[in-house]
Design a binder for these strands. Structure first.
Lengths: 152, 152
DNA sequence: TCAATTAGGTTTCATAATGCAACCCTATTG
DNA sequence: CAATAGGGTTGCATTATGAAACCTAATTGA
């Protein structure tokens, strides 16, 4: 049967996963953050099938994570660029990357290190923080409106 | 054909997505963070098919995101609990939640607000930061070892 | 005590998604 | 003017997904 969708789920995580929660979408966004913009480059760098890439790019454009820009005068060359919404996935991608580096480090090569362009220093481990910037763990946190249910 | 797996990808995001990158896994982890521990509760709260739930729980246990604990003396009652690795997905889930709340707000109800248990104040918007805690955008960041390629 | 229910799964089967290869069309290049 | 590159679409075989039915062991209710 059809894969279950979460378009109207009351849970925002579910709705988010509805847009970028499949195997390829987030990798495409990641690749876009690395600077990739063109169809063929996505295809080669990700090793994704062309029809799947087409479908995912369309969906990402539809969901306004990417925009399809016609570069090249005659309408035969396009670029897929991140929108603000897409760029806002930056913390998601970084959090995932850091989690992957920590718990599934590559056997051979060191983790990719991202650095601050200004200072040249590595970025901080991403964390959930309170209003003052103090790091919070899962246990330090609660939901005041739990009566309405955590949804989903 | 079989879905492409990324077990040995050089990209840690790809490896991470290999473990929690499908439609259900992250939602199961989220539910676990809300306190759900039992099979039937996952099933009802997520509305997931039982066979899929079985498969995902097994995979999450296999990947050490959850542990299966035998509570109940006779071996017929189990709990699935987050491991440290699973709890470490907290920033990922929160980042996704905040992204979803920002860009796909629920039409009816307000976004779920998480609060610091100590101060009672809402948590901060999650962000990528430099070593001093200064927020960084995608453009403020670079990869010193880009020569080896952004991986993947 | 004995039937019903709960918990945790497995099986079956129809439908949808995925991956690969082979095409197609339009520009550009040599 | 043929070859190639960019950006897709189509067909088909293989998987994954979802719903419902079924199964087994333990617990509950009357």
């Amino acid at each position: 049967m059809a894969r279950k969708r979460f378009d109207d789920s009351s849970c925002s995580v579910a709705r988010a996963l509805n847009e970028v929660g499949d195997w390829w979408s987030l990798l495409i966004v990641l690749q876009a953050m690395y600077g990739t913009r063109r169809y063929v480059d996505f295809q080669q760098q990700l090793g994704i099938a062309k029809n799947i890439l087409c479908d995912r790019l369309s969906r990402l454009v539809e969901n306004e994570v990417l925009t399809k820009v016609d570069v090249g005068e005659h309408g035969s060359r396009f670029e897929y660029r991140l929108t603000d919404k897409g760029r806002d996935l930056f913390p998601v991608v970084i959090a995932l990357r850091q989690w992957g580096d920590k718990w599934n480090p590559a056997p051979d090569r060191p983790p990719l290190d991202l650095r601050d362009r200004d200072s040249g220093r590595p970025i901080k481990q991403i964390q959930v923080q309170d209003a003052d910037g103090k790091p919070l763990s899962l246990r330090d946190v609660f939901l005041p409106n739990l009566d309405s249910g955590p949804a989903d």
